[in-house]
Design a protein around this nucleic acid. Sequence first.
DNA 1: CTTGGAAAGTCAACAAGGCTGACGTAAATT
DNA 2: AATTTACGTCAGCCTTGTTGACTTTCCAAG
Lengths: 166, 166
Amino acid sequence: MVDGSGGGEGLLFLTDEQLRKGIEAMFFAYRGFTADPDRILEGMDYGRAHHRAIHFIHRSPGTTVSNLLATLGVTKQSLNRVLRSLIEDGLVEQRVGRTDKRERNLHLTAKGAELERALSDAQRARMRAAYRAAGPAAVQGFRTVLEAMMDPEMRRQYQGLRDTNA
Amino acid sequence: MVDGSGGGEGLLFLTDEQLRKGIEAMFFAYRGFTADPDRILEGMDYGRAHHRAIHFIHRSPGTTVSNLLATLGVTKQSLNRVLRSLIEDGLVEQRVGRTDKRERNLHLTAKGAELERALSDAQRARMRAAYRAAGPAAVQGFRTVLEAMMDPEMRRQYQGLRDTNA
DNA sequence: CTTGGAAAGTCAACAAGGCTGACGTAAATT
DNA sequence: AATTTACGTCAGCCTTGTTGACTTTCCAAG
């Protein structure tokens, strides 16, 4: 008994060693996860922050700046720097809110959608390969554990798309 | 058939929508994954880079600077900045290699081990909660998918601890 | 024994992308 | 009319990554 949990046989997957493996798996896998988009972005004037903004605007067209702020978990100033360049370069369009004119509804332009597609194609290709190699049962478990690992607020962001006020 | 794969019934988990969910799960879960250690580090003079160094020195006591460089995937200059502060503050100790005197074997001091424990306790607690909530089968799948997602070189880092030349 | 290369350390300069604090404006709400 | 909300922006700071250049120490091969 290396593990101090003292639990029954079914708890062997909760040993410190198993947990350490899980932690390192997250670390190394996240590197792979971001590698392909990063490769596309490098050279262009953009980085991972731009990718994230583009991703979530694509996911929730018409979302507001506040919504995006909550989803990304960064400050207004930080997001603004990124958003400004995307708007200047004609990848993102902002439209004055129709019900609340203080809001800015964000949309990808054709050009923005094109970059989004390139980025997500690359990222999905890796994801698809991993899913295919692991099989449907593993994928189910993968999603279950990741969801359990999120902060409750993030879990809500993940589950519901309640910011589609396009 | 929303999915264009045209495959059999067993491939429904490979739809773009499923893949998008997986991508966002990674994004949100990684935030949770780093949140607790980040909270401990903030206020101290250290950041996530210090955490990573401490983690891998703990995992492979006596590892060399080159090994650490390969594991972390950063430049020598970047690691050195981090390592220097950890050594100055007495968290990490470097011993001249006994077989190859050019090498520096890295070890945590008692003080370093103490911080390591605080950080990994926090991170493991979240991991343990997620594992427990998801169950052993899900954990198995989680690890399988993450491993499939890594770059081959990182997978080797993950699987073998071949740098324990303490 | 000399010499080439490897391991490590360091200086300088720069960039991305976080952060705080302070302020301004327009529009909604009270 | 006053307050609050949504957004934008200026200025400055920090961490952590990058390149490039150079040094010291040491191993190993000629």
